[in-house]
Design a protein around this nucleic acid. Structure first.
Lengths: 388, 388
DNA sequence: CTCCTTATTTTCCTCTGTCAATGAAAGCAG
DNA sequence: CTGCTTTCATTGACAGAGGAAAATAAGGAG
C-alpha cells in the first residue's frame, strides 16, 4: 500500500545542521555548548541549527539529563527523539529476508524473518514487499510514519546508483533494486552492501561511535570486513572493498575456492570449520552447530580446528591493522557463537602479527544477532534521511 | 643563516581558494570554466579566487595553452608559475641525507646527497642544516625565495605535531624535529613519514593525480606502502599505516625478523633477495647490485629468487587491492632496478590473488630515482604552504 | 538581594559564493 | 563590414551561513 503523501523531509538544510544532528544522534544527549565544541562551530550556530530540529520534533530538550556545572546556569541538553520516526531495514540472504522496524535511534522495535522461495529479482521483490507491508502495519501501532527503507545485500552494490551490480549469492547482475523497491514500497530506498551497512550501524550506533578509523570483521558463512577510514566507510574505487576472506593466513593451508591455499575463508568460515571438524574427528557433522557442539563437549580434534581458525582470524585482523592502523577492530557475526573457543588464539595471533603501533589497535568482540544485519540496512536508510 | 624576514604567506584564505589552486596545480593549465566544473564551484567564484593568486604571481595566464572552442570566445587558461617559489625537501636515511631544491610545481632544480657521520639528532641536524644552507645558496641563483622545508623520515612520524615519535633506523624517540629544524633553517618545516611523503608527491604531481583511492608500494631495503583513501593519505589512528612488509605471502617461507615466516619483506626486500641468491647459487654476493648482476647474466637460481620475490610482491599488492579496492597501485623504489626480472610474476600473482572487482585495479610501475624521496618531502612542504 | 559564573540566545555583521546580467572575443552569414 | 551566435569571463547585487559580542537566563554563594 504505497503511501501517496509526499515524503517527509529533514529540516537540516545546511551541512552544519546535518553535522550537529548527527553528533547529537551518535553521542547521546548533548548540551549546545558541548555540541558546538565537538563540531567546531560556535554556540550561536548550534542554537540556530537546533531550533528547527526541535520544532520538527526530531530533537527534544532532555530535562532528565540536565547537567549542573558546579557553578553557573545549568545546561539543558538536547537529544534525538527516537520515537519521532521509524525506518525499515531488510537484509536479503540467499534463502531468507530478515526485516526490522527501527526508530530514528536505530533501536529495533520489531523483527521478522521470512523464507525465500526463489532468488530471481522479481521473486525476492515480492517477498520483500510483503515483509515491508507487514512491518508498515506494525508501524501504525506506534503512530509514527516510516520515513525510509534500507536494503542490505551481499556483493557488489552501488549505493549512489541504488543498483546491485553483482551478487553471487542471489545470482543477480545489475538489478536497479532501489528504483524497484521504491516503486513497490512507496518509500525512499537506500541499497548497500551488507557488511558496509553493518559497519554504518557500528559507526553511528555501535562500537565505532566517535572513531575515525576502525574495522568490522564478520565471521560466519563467509569472512567479511567493513572499513572506516577518515571517518568514512570505504567503498573502494570500484565499489568493492574489505575482501578480507582471501588474505593468506595459514602456510600451505587448505585449498580455497579462489584457487589459492590457506585463505582466511578456507580456514575460518563456517563451512571450512565444519568440514575440517568432520575430517579430523571422523565424526560426521552436518553444520556449524554440530561442529560447535562437538568442540564444546571437549573433543580435542574439534577444539584444535577452532583454535586454528582463531589463529587465522587473528592474523587476518593483524593484516588489516598493519595496513590501516585502525583504532579498533570489532569482530562479530554468527561465527561468534564459538567465540569462547577462538578468543585466546585470535588475541595471541593478532598480538604476534601486529607490527609496532598496529598492536595498539583494540580488538573487541560484539556478538551480533542476525537481526543486526537488517538493523545495518535501517542505519543506511537513517543516514540517507538525515542527509549524510 | 636563518632569514629574518617574515614568512611569506599564501593569498588563499578560503577553503575554496585553496581547492581551486590545488586543482590548477595538479591538473595543469585549466580554464576558469574548467576549474569551476572540477571543483563544483561557480565560475564567478573561480574568477574571484584566482585574481589575488594572479596578482601575487602564483598563477599566470597561460596564453600558450589557449583553448579554442569550435565557436565562441577562446578560453584563457591559468597555470601555476612553478618558478614563483622554491622549496627544499630532505630525506633522512640511516647513513645519508638526500636533499632537493624544487619549484612550486615540485620539479627538482638541484639535488644533493651528503653522508651522515652519526645518527644522534644533533649530528643529523648539523648535517641537515649545512645541506639546507647549501641549497638555499643555490636558490639565490634563481632569484626566488625558498618558502618551506620538508623532511621525510622513516618510522612513526606525527606530521601535525612535527615530531618523530620513533624511528628504528635512526634510533630516535620523540624528537621534535620540526621545531628544531625551523630554528636552524629559519623556514616553515613539515615533517612526515617517508613513504607518506612519496605518496603525497604521487598524489599531487605523479601517477596518483586525480585518483581518490590508490596505493604506492615501494620495493627496496624494506617494503613500504602509502595509501590514499577518499582522496586523503592514510595515517592511521596512531600515526602509522601501510605496514605491508609483514603480510604473509609465501607459505612456510623464510623466517622474518618479526618472528613470523614468509612475510613479504622476508622474501622481496633487497637483503632477503641478496641473501637468498647467495644461498641458492653458492656464489657469495655482497649486495643487491651483485645479486642483480648475477641474475642478469642468466643464472637460473638467481632468476628464480627474483621470480619468487615478484610473486610475493604481486600477492602483497593483491591483499591491499582486495581490502581497499584502489583504482591503481604504483610500484616503485630502488628495488625496481630489477623490474624486468619481476614484472611478469608481479602481474600474474596479482591477477591470481585479486578477487572480483579488485582485479580491475591497475598496477603500474614507476622507476623512482632516490631523489624522489626527497622530492616527496618537498611535496609535503608545498602542501603545508598552500594550506592543505 | 547582589554578585559571580556558566549556558543560551539575540543582534548585528562579515564574508563567501551564487545568480543573473553584462562584457569580451571569437566565427559566420549576409 | 555588420549583426548574430556562441562561449568564456567578469561584475555587482544579494542571500545566507556562521561568527563575535552583548544581552539574557538560571543557578549558587555571600
Amino acid at each position: 500500500m504505497p503511501s501517496t503523501s509526499p515524503a517527509e523531509t529533514f529540516p537540516a538544510h545546511t551541512p552544519a545542521a546535518s553535522q550537529i544532528f548527527t553528533t547529537v544522534l551518535t553521542h547521546g544527549p548533548l548540551t549546545r555548548q558541548e555540541a558546538a565544541r565537538r563540531t567546531g562551530l560556535s554556540p550561536a550556530a548550534v542554537t540556530k541549527a537546533v531550533r528547527p530540529l526541535l520544532e520538527a520534533g526530531y530533537l527534544v530538550e532532555d530535562a532528565g539529563a540536565e547537567v549542573r556545572p558546579p557553578v553557573g546556569r545549568p545546561a539543558s541538553p538536547v537529544r534525538v527523539d527516537g520515537g519521532r520516526a521509524l525506518f525499515v531495514g531488510l537484509k536479503v540472504t540467499g534463502d531468507e529476508i530478515i526485516g526490522v522496524l527501527t526508530d530514528l535511534c536505530c533501536r529495533i522495535r520489531v523483527a521478522r524473518r521470512v523464507p525465500l522461495s526463489g532468488r530471481a529479482p522479481r521473486q525476492v521483490l515480492t517477498v520483500a514487499a510483503d515483509l515491508v507491508r507487514e512491518l508498515l502495519t506494525e508501524a501504525e501501532g506506534f503512530g509514527v510514519r516510516v520515513l525510509g527503507l534500507g536494503i542490505a545485500v551481499a556483493g557488489d552494490v552501488d549505493r549512489a546508483a541504488g543498483t546491485v551490480r553483482y551478487s553471487p549469492f542471489l545470482d543477480w547482475r545489475d538489478v536497479p533494486l532501489a528504483g524497484l523497491a521504491e516503486e513497490a514500497a512507496g518509500l525512499p530506498v537506500t541499497v548497500d552492501n551488507d557488511v558496509r551497512a553493518l559497519t554504518v550501524a557500528e559507526q553511528w550506533f555501535g562500537d565505532g561511535v566517535g572513531l575515525s578509523d576502525f574495522a568490522v570483521v564478520t565471521v560466519g558463512a563467509g569472512i567479511g570486513c567493513g572499513l572506516v577510514v577518515h571517518g568514512r566507510v570505504v567503498s573502494g574505487a570500484h565499489g568493492v572493498a574489505g575482501e578480507i576472506g582471501h588474505v593468506p593466513v595459514v602456510p600451505d593451508g587448505p585449498p580455497c575456492h579462489c584457487g589459492d591455499r590457506g585463505c582466511l575463508e578456507a580456514v575460518a568460515s563456517d563451512a571450512a570449520i565444519t568440514a575440517r571438524v568432520g575430517e579430523v574427528t571422523g565424526v560426521p557433522v552436518a553444520d556449524a552447530a554440530e561442529a560447535l557442539a562437538l568442540a564444546r563437549r571437549g573433543d580435542a580434534g574439534a577444539r584444535a580446528v577452532y583454535a586454528r581458525a582463531g589463529e587465522a582470524i587473528g592474523r587476518g585482523i593483524a593484516t588489516v591493522a598493519n595496513l590501516l592502523g585502525p583504532e579498533r577492530v570489532i569482530i562479530s557475526g554468527e561465527g561468534l557463537a564459538a567465540y569462547d573457543l577462538f578468543a585466546g588464539q585470535i588475541r595471541d595471533a593478532f598480538t604476534a602479527a601486529a607490527f609496532g603501533s598496529a598492536a595498539r589497535c583494540e580488538v573487541r568482540t560484539r556478538p551480533l544477532p542476525f537481526e543486526e544485519w537488517a538493523r545495518g540496512a535501517a542505519a543506511t536508510a537513517i543516514q540517507s534521511f538525515v542527509g549524510r
